[in-house]
Amino acid sequence: MAEWFQDNSGLLGLALLDGLASAGLIFLVAVGLNLVFGVLRIVNVAHGSLYAIGAYAAASVGIFFASLGLPAWASLPALFIAAALVGVVLGPLIERFILRRIYGQEEVLQLLVTFALFMILEDVQKLIWGVQPVQHDVAMRYLGTFDVPFAGDVVPFTAYQLFVLPGVALVVLVGLAWFLRRTLTGRVIVAVTTDREAATAMGIDARRVFLLTFTFGAILAALGGALSSPTGAIVPGIGPQTIVLSFAVVATAGLGQTEGAALTALMIGLGRSIAVYFEPELEVVVPYIIMLAVLLVRPQGLFGTTTTRRI
């Protein structure tokens, strides 16, 4: 075993870097879903659609900026602007006109409403952006590559994937922790997450909290999509694939647990990249194996707390 590690330490090092990059993206998407679930108690299937729309919008804004003649660095803020736009426009629209009408209804109806939205948004994407792959990779190319030494040679990584993706994830993680613990709005959100009835009884305006949280979750989903856009092509169908993985992260992490989502994303990111190096056929099932393993030991998720059962 020890020998195996020695022989493969170089490869494991590379796998660690790969894992970090993909964990950053997984975290960003999952944390928004987790936040929304924690507060609204709705599993938002349309989260994946917001991710896809964020990606498309980022490419569009980037192309628009380029057409204005803005320099290459502008494509970096373009990603964030696009994500904010998508979240601020679609988030309140969906919350106000659709979700608000089904609060307090059966869980299955809430789930299906977002499933319906997901179906509708899939076709909306096609109507707006067509079906040909959309790409805008200026942000990735602008930052260039970073050479990591390996076996007497170098392996180039894109600086974008090595630094920007985990970096943004870290900022969101720390920022969210600060926001939820140190600001009034944040504490209100935590209060609603922990005990909705008590919180509303104390005079918290749940409606405002819901609107705010959903919009914030939508921005995070769109940000995940936007940040993924410089490295990949955006095609129909990226939403459904993203959302399933995020579900696994949320259930593994424990409800509404930001740190749990971060740790789970890290485990899944690393697990998948190590699988690609040593047992590629296992890559797709790694997230689910991790999830099942965690839930067998901790049925409430990594960081979840046991809920008191109603009598």
Binding site: F37, A248, A251, Y288, P299
Partner: peptide, 14 residues
Amino acid sequence: EIFFGMLNLALSMV
């Protein structure tokens, strides 16, 4: 609830 739903989803995806 959510765990039931998500576990079913995860197992079906496996």
